[in-house]
Nucleic acid binder design. Sequence first.
DNA 1: CTCAAGCGAGAGCAGTGCTCTCGTAAGTGG
DNA 2: CCACTTACGAGAGCACTGCTCTCGCTTGAG
Lengths: 233, 233
Amino acid sequence: MSTAQGARARARIEVTSAIKDEARRQLAAEGAAKLSLRAVARELGMVSSALYRYFPSRDDLLTALIIDAYDSLGEAAEAAHAAASDTGPLRRWVAVCDAVRGWALGHPHEYALIYGSPVPGYTAPDTTVRAASRVGLLLTRIVRDAHRSVGVARTPIPVELRPEAERLTADLAPDLPPEVTMALVAAWAQVYGLIGFELFGQFNRVVEDRETFFRYSVSRIAHEVGLVFPEKE
Amino acid sequence: MSTAQGARARARIEVTSAIKDEARRQLAAEGAAKLSLRAVARELGMVSSALYRYFPSRDDLLTALIIDAYDSLGEAAEAAHAAASDTGPLRRWVAVCDAVRGWALGHPHEYALIYGSPVPGYTAPDTTVRAASRVGLLLTRIVRDAHRSVGVARTPIPVELRPEAERLTADLAPDLPPEVTMALVAAWAQVYGLIGFELFGQFNRVVEDRETFFRYSVSRIAHEVGLVFPEKE
DNA sequence: CTCAAGCGAGAGCAGTGCTCTCGTAAGTGG
DNA sequence: CCACTTACGAGAGCACTGCTCTCGCTTGAG
């Protein structure tokens, strides 16, 4: 139904994706700030005003790129998870984190776009939310599986956090103990912190062997969410 | 020697700081992307070209703002530390982290500027490094004090990380065990991750009581660097 | 007192996002 | 099969940006 319904429509999605491709190229090359509609149009051999038939504004183009980036990152993470599906939870956890880091290093500007400072007056439309949560859901799944199979360690949480933890658990993973959901959310943020520091140069002249450092830190974070530590290397 | 050496020089530093103030205002209001030299000049009643007598380019203005932001953040952290100087290490740790988070929430655009995605082709000049490391040094000091007074817990690190950990220790805190320095660097990155996720909206519709969540998470991270956990509330 | 240096003003260049209008080509209803 | 609406590309134009260059005035050092 969506295929071959008029050459017009087909051409439209083709041009749309050509615009996104060229925009992604410029984004990767120069960063979001230097992404220019006119330059994209120029490169595609069209005039700038024509581009507005496809994206109503530069921000809309950026939003489209952001969603694609989330999806690309999510796919990379899921692929890594699938490749490690026959190993234990800890190794899968590390594999997924590694994949996220790898994607971030390979697509620094796109990573910055989705996890760095948001563009000026930008608030994420709901469309992005689903794409954005893929990695988080994946990590949740790993912990959930681990919980089902071997059980996870728990650290008590203070009373004032209990309501928060229970709401979170109900939303994310009702089958997990609240302590774990809590730690899981924090863990994901912490992994993001490690990647961000590396990517944005805060580790320059501080950490040298960043891959080893990352793997180690991420393992410790995994321990925090209850994944058993002394899993066979 | 630096005071009152010619009205010319005095006027210069006055205008320079007036420019920075107005630029900071625009930065806070609209974000780095919308900071415009011409708008700054306009607001100050001068013509845009005059501004180039003080800052050779827009990037140089931004760099100046970045250094000031680092200093402002560092001061906030150090003030919080001083205010909690008669308490235990864990509470001081939490106080400093809290101050950093507070500063970040109060200056989101400036925080984004220094810890979010770096501006386009920008590489931090050495001038910024010193200002940038103030918070890290402060956290190091807390852990170092704790180590001297009560000792800190250690978690063994894998062999492949030993050289890294030892180099790091030599650079940062020779009096600390390598396991701790290692964990400390990771901890700082993780704290940054928590703040970043909150600031950039990743906790929207996920975490509600963010202050409590942050304090708790930061306490757990403190535990990771060996600060004793069951310190009296 | 002289004179080079510092400074502000203005014009100007190349670039940007975005709007509007105008022909033309494509697909649709009669 | 033909008229008509719709989608689209081109072009001109507006307001804005960072940045450069030149021109005079002011200032402070020699």
